[in-house]
């Protein structure tokens, strides 16, 4: 891209159009010469796709970091566990647990990619403030027999006792961050990327059809020309 400014020959500079993205360019090099206008929407889609992919990989990295910290803190809590506590794990899970954080889908999503968020269904924390536009889930779901039980979700830390060790609380902090910030965004990106993939495939199919039609036209034209030559 910088070649256009440093190149002394203006004609040469004009013949090398700036490429939006090396990856998208590499996929469309085979057809750029045939139908230059048809590749433009595909390139735009691929550019958008790569932006989504970039965000996806960044979020993946963040999730990896958060989970590493979570496992470290859990291991620390287990190492420093008091006598009697074998391990902070499934033995202490509450058999009547209720979800305090739930998936909330926004109404105003643009068709294929409704933004997903995870919020505190009860509202005793500040999650609601973070997502003013999105619909917050009610504490009581639609199911009738669930309503009796839907009292107030207990803080999962309480399953492990009243005075829980600091590493366990830190582990909870990392988990909450992952569940509230990273995972919903990853889910949204997953859906968005799938939608773009579909569009790209459709556009490619369309382009292939157009190319075939053009080839047919060319063949017909050549045949006509040959006939004219024979007649002459």
């Amino acid at each position: 891209m910088s070649n256009t400014t440093t190149n002394p020959d203006p004609n040469l500079a004009q013949t090398t159009p700036p490429l939006p993205n090396p990856a998208s360019a590499s996929t469309s090099t085979s057809t750029t010469t045939a139908t230059p206008t048809a590749t433009t929407p595909i390139d735009a889609l691929l550019t958008h796709y790569l932006t989504l992919l970039d965000e996806y990989t960044t979020l993946r990295h963040t999730l990896h970091t958060l989970q590493t910290r979570l496992y470290q803190d859990l291991a620390r809590a287990n190492f420093a566990a008091e006598r009697g506590v074998r391990r902070y794990g499934s033995d202490y899970y509450d058999g009547r647990m209720q979800a305090g954080r739930r998936v909330v889908g926004a109404e105003g999503g643009s068709g294929a990619e409704p933004p997903v968020t995870v919020g505190d269904g009860v509202g005793d924390e500040d999650v609601k403030e973070k997502q003013p536009e999105e619909e917050i889930s009610d504490a009581a779901p639609g199911g009738g027999d669930d309503e009796k039980e839907m009292a107030k979700p207990v803080d999962p830390l309480r399953w492990f006792g009243i005075l829980t060790p600091l590493p366990l609380r830190q582990a909870q902090g990392h988990a909450i961050k992952a569940v509230e910030e990273i995972i919903p965004r990853l889910a949204t990106l997953n859906t968005a990327m799938a939608a773009v993939e579909l569009e790209v495939r459709r556009a490619r199919k369309k382009r292939a059809k157009a190319e075939k039609a053009e080839e047919k036209k060319l063949v017909a034209l050549e045949e006509k020309m040959a006939e004219v030559d024979v007649n002459a």
């Binding site: 979570l70 859990l74 291991a75 794990g89 499934s90 954080r101 027999d145 999962p156 509230e180």
Partner: peptide, 29 residues
Amino acid sequence: YRDRQFLAVIGDEDSVTGLLLAGIGHVTA
């Protein structure tokens, strides 16, 4: 889509414990 309000997890004990600490665990009636 709106009815889908829970996160589910299939994982080893530490992964599940960590995610349940965030408050996603739910047992139906």
